[in-house]
Amino acid sequence: LAAGLGAHVRAVLSVGLPSAVQMAVVNLSYALVTGMLNRYGVDVAAAAGVGLQISTIAGLPCWAIGQAITTAAAQCAGAGELARARDVARLGARLNIGVTLGIQVLIQLLAPAIVGLYGLAQGTSFDIAVLYLRITCSVNGLFYAAMYSFDSFALGAGSPRLVLANSLIDAFAVRFGLAFLLSGALGFGYVGIFVAQAASPVIPALIGGAYLRHWTRSHGVERGK
């Protein structure tokens, strides 16, 4: 009984610990980036705070679809329905990208009005907040939707370490590392930080797509079935 319980605990921790570290990594990277933005003064800090709140709300549907992908993929894989698990990942990613595209288009069209709802008066902070949305809620959102969908599938398929590795790339290698490079060494200032945030999901999305293809081939799931 004790041995069986220990095996279950190890199985839970093998998934739970990487997931916990992933969340810590993401939140730490945002804290570091926020600290970098605070150096540019009150206007930039206020604008980035509003922009981050809006982009967080915009990301809620993406996260909800990702959780559904994790649950459905895990159930299908556990039942031996590997082709169905693959289809969950593909259809889920398409749905996520489609929904995210619609949200991003609305944000691009209504950015000034949305920022105005947060109480920022016309001026420097207002303009910077709109710029934040123009940069961080654009085409990059499609890569974020793909990244989150593929990572959600990987988590359901039993590869939490891949998800953790992708989070490290997204959070530190690109979001923080590129922000440090663009804002400092290359002299783009806070705009460079915005660009780094926008670019952060691109590489992880490509890695996630490659993982899905590898998983499909390695598990002998035939194309189209």
Rank of each mutant, 00 (worst) to 15 (best):
Y211H: 14
R39E: 14
V50E: 02
S125H: 05
G119V: 07
L182G: 09
P18R: 12
V130L: 03
V26Q: 13
V115M: 08
L60Y: 12
F150W: 13
V221W: 07
A185I: 11
Y40M: 01
L131E: 13
A199K: 05
G189E: 00
D170R: 12
L142G: 05
G158S: 05
G78N: 03
Q122T: 10
R223C: 12
S200A: 14
T124I: 11
V44R: 00
A47D: 02
G98S: 11
A85W: 02
L133C: 07
V195T: 10
I107C: 06
A199S: 12
Q22G: 11
S159P: 04
I193N: 00
S183L: 02
I65S: 08
M36T: 04
L178I: 13
A58L: 10
G192C: 05
G80M: 02
A146L: 14
G116L: 04
L110M: 14
S14R: 12
F176L: 15
A121C: 06
R161A: 11
G192F: 00
D43I: 00
T34P: 06
G187R: 03
V44P: 00
G80L: 08
Q122F: 09
L142A: 05
R175D: 06
Q53G: 11
G66W: 04
R86Q: 11
A83W: 08
A46H: 06
L1S: 15
A45H: 08
L101Q: 07
A31D: 01
I169T: 14
A3Y: 09
L155T: 13
L168I: 15
C76E: 13
A89Y: 06
G41K: 03
A58I: 09
V195W: 05
G4L: 08
S183T: 10
I169L: 12
G224E: 08
I107M: 07
G16C: 10
L101R: 02
A31H: 04
G208H: 06
G220N: 09
V12W: 13
K225V: 15
G158N: 06
I193F: 03
W63Y: 14
L17R: 05
A198S: 09
L17I: 14
A205V: 10
G6M: 07
N96G: 04
A173P: 09
V202R: 08
I135N: 00
D43S: 14
A3F: 12
A146C: 09
M36L: 15
V44N: 01
L13P: 10
L13R: 09
G189T: 03
G119L: 03
S183K: 04
P61D: 03
A7K: 12
P160I: 07
A85S: 11
H214R: 15
Y144C: 11
S183R: 07
S200H: 04
G192K: 03
A85L: 03
A24Q: 06
A196C: 05
D170K: 13
A2G: 12
L101S: 15
S125C: 06
V25D: 01
V115G: 12
T71W: 03
